[in-house]
């Protein structure tokens, strides 16, 4: 068809190039408009892509802001190792807010379930306040979840870090409003318009490294609520949950007590892309125990100040 031929012409950008240009623009806008920004960085794939984009945005300068990790203490060691590797590769300053430390100080209390997802939020707010961060960039994507589908790229948070879905600032063209009063802040999502598949295609196109647990490997796992959990310190099988060694990989990396693996043979980035493009289950649905509790779980947590 003619259309297809014309589209091959010069000066055409692929969807990845358009998304990249948009994300770089957003990250630069934060640095230009906000005094003291930081970027959330966990060592997970989305945050690695975001940090890679930040490096491109300011090259050949160094990344002009610190990265912030809220450490639940429930980590996959491979991810923590990768986090530190990236920090030294990109020569950024790492700020850590420790949930364990906050528990020890009696600032937050651990859930009976052992999940530290909910209590991350006060630690995030406390750490951001301590360092005076008034803009935090996060790697959340709108395709992940329906509360996120309605959140702005520049998302205003009041002095308690709370999101109010009913009074969001209209966001037009590529004009973003980062203006806040003292005490208020902005959460910024440069990857808003990316999907899980875009992330993987970009990882492949740019040759970006990610922690090995994103690729298929042998692991001792057990089944719980239809999901495969690794048997480790954070997550012990009960007597009637037999463990077996299976080929698995992780699609998301969160709190190690809650994040499940998926059965997979995809041990290269190409195979992961193939798997992601035919999968019929969302990333969160497949691997997160926490979002299943209620339909509106994410919405509630965001209102409290969660990312």
């Amino acid at each position: 068809m003619i259309d297809t031929d014309r589209r091959q012409t010069k000066r055409h950008l692929t969807q990845l190039q358009v998304l990249e240009a948009e994300a770089i623009y957003i990250i630069r806008e934060v640095v230009a408009e906000v005094e003291n920004p930081a970027m959330m960085f966990s060592g997970g794939k989305d945050s690695i892509v975001m940090l890679h984009l930040a490096a491109k945005a300011f090259a050949p300068s160094a990344i002009p802001f610190p990265v912030l990790h809220i450490d639940t203490g429930h980590n996959f060691p491979e991810v923590l190792e990768f986090r530190d590797l990236c920090v030294s590769k990109y020569r950024v300053n790492l700020v850590v807010g420790s949930v364990q430390d906050a528990i020890d100080r009696n600032v937050v209390f651990e859930d009976r379930s052992g999940s530290r997802n909910r209590i991350q939020t006060p630690v995030l707010l406390e750490t951001a306040a301590k360092h005076g961060f008034n803009a935090l960039m996060g790697g959340a994507r709108r395709d992940e979840e329906k509360a996120r589908a309605k959140e702005r790229v520049f998302s205003f948070r009041d002095e308690f870090g709370q999101w109010d879905p009913k009074s969001q600032r209209p966001e037009l063209w590529s004009i973003y409003n980062a203006q806040v009063h003292v005490g208020e802040s902005i959460r910024v999502f440069p990857l808003s318009n990316w999907t899980e598949l875009d992330i993987w295609e970009y990882i492949a196109a740019e040759g970006i490294g990610v922690p090995p647990i994103y690729y298929a490997h042998q692991r001792e796992v057990f089944e719980r609520n239809g999901m495969w959990f690794a048997a480790n310190n954070f997550c012990q099988p009960t007597a009637n949950e037999p463990t077996e060694v299976k080929s698995v990989r992780y699609r998301t990396v969160g709190d190690a007590t809650l994040t499940a693996a998926v059965l997979s043979e995809a041990d290269t980035v190409e195979k992961v892309i193939e798997e992601v493009s035919v999968t019929r289950i969302t990333e969160r649905g497949a691997t997160r125990g926490d979002d299943k509790f209620s339909e509106a779980a994410m919405e509630d947590r965001k209102k409290e100040g969660y990312f």
């Binding site: 969807q15 709108r142 395709d143």
Partner: peptide, 13 residues
């Protein structure tokens, strides 16, 4: 309340 953004892809776009 608000504009929601949604994503899908075909082999072409």
């Amino acid at each position: 309340i608000d504009v929601a953004y949604r994503y899908f892809a075909t082999a072409k776009r």
